[in-house]
């Protein structure tokens, strides 16, 4: 595995420069049911296909970005800074 990710600040870098932060999923609201919380804490969708995920550029600018990647081919379609108020 040695594909390239385009960091919005640093440019194309090897995937090993990043720490994988998991798939992007919404955090339940404070009053949500136990089932929703368990699902959030322990379950993953784990798509075979396009997914949006968190990446931390630990060897570079040390910022969190989001990446849209096809998990079958490792083709990275898009990378961007997290949008404001979009958690």
């Amino acid at each position: 595995m040695s594909f390239l990710l385009r960091c919005p600040h640093c440019g194309d870098r090897s995937v090993y420069e990043f720490r994988f932060g998991g798939e992007v999923k919404p955090r339940p609201a404070p009053g949500a049911s136990e089932e929703e919380w368990v699902n959030y804490a322990y379950n993953r969708t784990n798509s075979a296909g396009v997914q949006t995920e968190w990446c931390y550029h630990r060897s570079g600018c040390r910022q969190w970005i989001k990446a849209v990647r096809n998990t079958r081919t490792n083709e990275v379609l898009e990378t961007f800074y997290p949008e404001e108020n979009a958690r």
Binding site: R19, G21, W54, Y56, R58, W64, E84, N85, A86, R87
Partner: peptide, 16 residues
């Protein structure tokens, strides 16, 4: 330290 810095930055990301 590295973990805490990343963790704080992650919870901050996207909040404005």
């Amino acid at each position: 330290l590295e973990f805490v810095e990343q963790w704080l930055e992650w919870w901050l990301a996207g909040t404005g």
